[in-house]
Each structure stands twice: as structure tokens, then as C-alpha cells.
Amino acid sequence: MVKRTLFLALFFASSLYARTGIYEKNCIPCHEDMAVKIDKFFYRYLLKYSSEMEVKKAMTKYLKSPKAENSILVDGLINRFGIKKKTTLSDEQLQEALDTYWDQYKIFDKLK
């Protein structure tokens, strides 16, 4: 029993720290510490842009040139948390990160 618990704990710890993907390395660390979780951003984007293409387009636009008027957040939250810094990722990397983000939270196949 002790052995098993130890094994599980090790497994979770390793998966937590073994952040291999671009999304996990570049997005999660900052968002983890924020008051508004990363999934809330996703649903907010979905609410405004609907389709995969539109959502990704809007996210790319904001990440490449973050401005208050591009942001999905309401003014109150922007005033409180401010605008993020411009992304340092290349277009391909950004695309890959967004693909992972989309796959993780997309509605398709989740509804029952």
C-alpha cells in the first residue's frame, strides 16, 4: 500500500515537472499562478469567436501584439491585471501551443 502510494506520488510529480510541449512550457507556468484559470480564457474566446479557426486567429493576434482593445478580458480585469508581454515564440511554435490548448479544452466530443 505504501509502495503504491509512493509510486503514484512519483508518477504525478514526474508528469507535473516533465513539461515537454511548447504549451506546457510557455503558457501553463504563468497562467497557473493567475486568479483567472487558463480554461476560463478559452471559454471566453469560444463565447466570442465560436469556431476553431476564429478562436485561434484571435488568440494569435492578441499574443503577437497584446493590446487592451484586442484582449478578451473585460476592462475591469485588464485594469487589474494589465496587458501581457508580447510572445517570444515563433509562428510555428505559437501555432503548436494553440493547437494543444484547443485540443485540451475544445467542446467537441466532450458533450454527452
Binding site: 465560436s50 476564429e54 454527452k112
Partner: peptide, 20 residues
């Protein structure tokens, strides 16, 4: 909750802006 709301009076469907 992941359960799509159903109603016995009608069937329904939702589509995104790319008509998917």
C-alpha cells in the same frame, strides 16, 4: 457538467461559425 440539455418537446443541434 458535460451533459447537453435535452427537451422532450424538441430535438436540437448546435453548430459553430464554420458550420461544424
Amino acid at each position: 457538467d458535460h451533459i447537453y440539455p435535452r427537451d422532450e418537446r424538441f430535438n436540437s443541434a448546435i453548430y459553430d461559425s464554420s458550420l461544424k
